[in-house]
């Protein structure tokens, strides 16, 4: 196992939303801070820094991960997906994102990135989810604005739309 010098910065390289990235980090730097401040990927937010609120959730090598409980150095060589990678293009939203907008499933939008990542991951593995299943999944996320129901509704709608092959799936 590599031992890192706690007083030095070390190069960290990984794939972020399909593109290679690289920057330096002290061994104690969190992945959340690394994404936001070293790479400028500020879509991932930090709400509690102790793994409860879920705002910082990203996908590391296909696994949902709290980036505030992960050190940047731990993900060297990994594939990471964040909210910036969800839309098909800069001027279009994906199916799940559109469903959120349609259902008023966000207000301040601060917790939204983490919720979107959890749902994107879950819907990929559960194409016909139940309301109970989604509520259980999202119990690891805190939202103070919406009262949650519109989020559940958006997720169910998006799942239905994704399961129907004929629909137009993205829009500005």
């Amino acid at each position: 196992m590599t031992r890192l010098n706690s007083n030095a910065r070390h190069a960290v390289r990984f794939t972020l939303n399909g593109k290679p990235v690289e920057a330096e980090a002290e061994p104690r730097m969190l992945l959340s801070d690394f994404l936001r401040h070293q790479l400028g990927a500020t879509g991932t937010h930090v709400g509690c820094e102790h793994g409860v609120c879920g705002a910082c959730t990203v996908i590391v090598d296909g696994m949902l991960t709290r980036s505030c409980l992960t050190l940047a150095a731990q993900v060297d060589g990994c594939e990471i997906r964040t909210v910036e990678g969800l839309a098909p293009s800069a001027d279009r939203l994906g199916v799940l994102q559109q469903a959120f907008r349609r259902n008023h499933a966000l207000q301040c939008g601060f917790c939204t990135a983490g919720i979107l990542m959890s749902l994107d991951h879950y819907l990929g593995e559960n194409p016909a989810p139940t309301e109970a299943g989604i509520r259980d999944l999202l119990s690891g996320h805190l939202c103070r604005c919406t009262g949650y129901t519109p989020i559940i509704q958006a997720a169910l709608e998006a799942a239905a739309q994704l399961a129907s092959p004929t629909k137009e799936t993205s829009d500005a």
Binding site: L86, A87, L93
Partner: peptide, 21 residues
């Protein structure tokens, strides 16, 4: 009318501009 919010596209794409962003 319940029109879609103009705020949402940026917030849903990680392009919000909060103070620490």
């Amino acid at each position: 009318r319940s029109i879609e919010r103009v705020e949402d596209a940026a917030l849903l794409s990680g392009r919000g501009r909060f103070i620490d962003d």
